[in-house]
Design a protein around this nucleic acid. Structure first.
Length: 246
DNA sequence: AGGAGTGTTGTGGT
DNA sequence: CACCACAACACTCC
């Protein structure tokens, strides 16, 4: 579930909840009292990267699906209790499972910077490049996973982007030639929208060129697989095709 | 059956 | 204080 494009799909699916009154809210959530949502009107539902934000007059709820979170709309999962279940006055039901639910304060809500969200209309590649230039020692594999720079990018997108632009995950951001840095930023968004379309068609996995792959599709030599960087996440990469800039 | 993984946060040590 | 390593959380699939 977790990467940005999946949240984008969810945002579309919950459009009908906006403006609705919440007539029931419950679940096994501990961090908030769902009863506080009952009677509230849903003023807006936004996504920011991997966050789902539900705004009501009384509280703003932030949902993060982490690694295992799922959702169902207008149905439940057999034998599973939702973390949070919300029923709207129009009869639609949003069930959220195995996710992290938090209340955020108004100031935090107001401070969300949508120009950092690769899926957002407000996405600002220039700002992203500026943030990258400010951290020249950062590794390319860590940079793509930095949610303050590329909100919504996850490990799959990371691996696919680096393969597409032929950059080794251990390259430092500061060593990338300007056109490569630009490409990194542009492909982070472009691949995210490709991901979105493939996800919609249920053909995402078959389009992976690097992630979880064993052989480089360009030169046929084995991929290297290693947990790299500060983030220590799986990287799949080709030592021949992907240049290491240092 | 055990382990790994589309993710993040908190804690405790150096 | 900065940086780290690691645990915790929670679920499905191989």
């Amino acid at each position: 579930m977790p990467e940005g494009p999946s949240l984008y799909i969810l945002k579309e699916l919950v459009k009908d909840f906006t403006g609705q009154q919440i007539v029931r809210a419950d679940g096994n959530v501990r961090a908030i009292d769902p009863a506080r949502l009952v009677g509230q009107q849903i003023e807006a539902i936004h996504t920011w990267g991997k966050h789902l934000l539900i705004e009501t007059p009384a509280m703003v709820v932030r949902v993060h699906f982490l690694l295992f979170g799922t959702y169902r709309i207008d149905e439940g999962r057999e034998g599973k209790t939702p973390r949070l279940s919300i029923e709207a006055a129009n009869g639609h039901v949003l069930n959220l499972y195995a996710c992290q639910v938090r209340e955020i304060d108004r100031a935090t809500y107001a401070a969300y910077d949508f120009s950092a969200d690769v899926m957002s209309d407000a996405w600002d590649p220039k700002k992203a490049r500026k943030k990258l230039r400010a951290q020249p020692d950062m590794l390319a594999c860590d940079a793509l996973l930095d949610q303050d720079i590329f909100s919504g990018v996850g490990n799959i997108i990371k691996n696919e982007v680096l393969f597409r632009i032929r950059v080794h995950p251990l390259s430092t951001v500061g060593a990338l030639p300007a056109p490569k840095l630009r490409l990194l930023v542009d492909e982070a968004r472009q691949y995210s929208f490709d991901f979105l379309e493939w996800k919609r068609q249920y053909v995402l996995k078959q389009h992976w060129l690097a992630h979880a792959k064993r052989i480089c599709p360009r030169c046929q030599i084995p991929f290297l697989k290693a947990k790299l960087g500060r983030t220590n996440r799986r990287s799949f990469y080709c030592e021949r095709c992907q240049k290491r800039y240092t």
